[in-house]
């Protein structure tokens, strides 16, 4: 699949924002002492707001006819993209109410504001889940059509959120809280394991072949001519090709940037390394998302001569 930059930015940034806000609310309401601090809560909330809003705006850039984007709310019953849009919008009033509560009352929130926080955190995770289901529900792309896709999106969103939360807290208070450090370390491990399982799983041959695609199941089938000498929409969208060697290099880069380096920086416990860890992780996740697209092979490629997906 062709990796559209706007979609990479959208899924990574909004994922990090949703992860950040849900962990922030959780840590705040669970009474973790370092998070009973108005400055940390407001800074974290604002950062999540910016990441999510920036991501959503970026996602509209890949629409070829954005003037009809408002109609995307209309098929909630069947379409995961529609569900994502509805939950993404529903999330905002609760986030704003929660942040308003903190602004007015500080960390000691009244019941209404607490409830708004809990709802914002829940809707954040639900939206992230809907995003992942857009990809996971496509039977045409076997690399995506799996429960591992939502698992990866949720794990990586929470992971980058935890790194950002640790960074915000460390910068605001001049020292990294042990509990946030451990949370982030744990989630980096979880994210790495989820990603490695995914990479292992997509490596196994499976799914449709040129034989089931053309209906000639008892003889070899080779493409002689794709029917057009210039390019086509299908080639541009689905025919994206990268050499195996380059994919391998990018996989190593991704594991290093997204998991290994942030883990080591955070393990040092130095407050000033926490922001660096989260920036590296975001860069790593952009690479991860690029690979998620580049390594996904749509079944249309079978009609264009590929023997299997």
């Amino acid at each position: 699949m062709h990796p559209a930059f706007s979609v990479l930015v959208f899924t990574v940034l909004s994922g990090a924002g949703y992860g950040l806000i849900s962990l922030l609310v959780l840590a705040h309401l669970a009474g973790i002492p370092q998070l009973q601090d108005t400055a940390v809560l407001l800074a974290g909330g604002l950062l999540a707001f910016l990441l999510i809003t920036g991501g959503l705006l970026s996602s509209t850039l890949h629409l070829a006819n954005p003037k009809n984007a408002w109609r995307a709310f209309s098929r909630f019953r069947t379409s995961w993209l529609s569900r994502e849009a509805v939950f993404a919008v529903l999330f905002y009033p609760f986030l704003l109410l929660y942040l308003f509560g903190i602004y007015r009352q500080g960390a000691e929130l009244g019941a209404l504001f607490k409830l708004a926080g809990i709802l914002a955190a829940t809707l954040a995770l639900v939206t992230l889940f809907c995003t992942s289901m857009i990809y996971a529900s496509l039977k045409t792309i076997r690399q995506w059509n799996s429960a591992l896709t939502p698992l990866n999106y949720l794990a990586l969103g929470l992971m980058s959120g935890a790194l950002l939360l640790a960074a915000v807290q460390a910068v605001a208070q001049g020292g990294l809280a042990a509990v946030l450090q451990q949370l982030a370390l744990g989630l980096v491990l979880l994210g790495a394991v989820a990603k490695l399982i995914y990479l292992f799983w997509i490596g196994k041959p499976a799914g449709s072949t040129i034989h089931t695609a053309t209906g000639f199941t008892q003889a070899s089938v080779r493409l002689l001519d794709q029917g057009h000498t210039a390019n086509s929409f299908l080639n541009d969208e689905f025919g994206y090709r990268v050499e195996a060697e380059r994919l391998m290099k990018l996989r190593y880069l991704m594991v290093g940037l997204a998991f290994v380096l942030p883990f080591m920086l955070l393990l040092s416990g130095q407050a000033w390394l926490a922001p660096a860890a989260s920036v590296l992780a975001i860069a790593g996740l952009l690479t991860e998302r690029w690979l998620f697209f580049a390594e996904a092979r749509h079944v249309v490629r079978l009609f264009h001569g590929e023997q299997h997906t």
């Binding site: 629409l63 070829a64 003037k67 496509l138 045409t140 929409f233 749509h298």
Partner: peptide, 12 residues
């Protein structure tokens, strides 16, 4: 139609 391409992804 808003041109999101999702239907073309869903079509085998």
């Amino acid at each position: 139609c808003m041109g999101c391409n999702l239907c073309s992804w869903a079509c085998p």
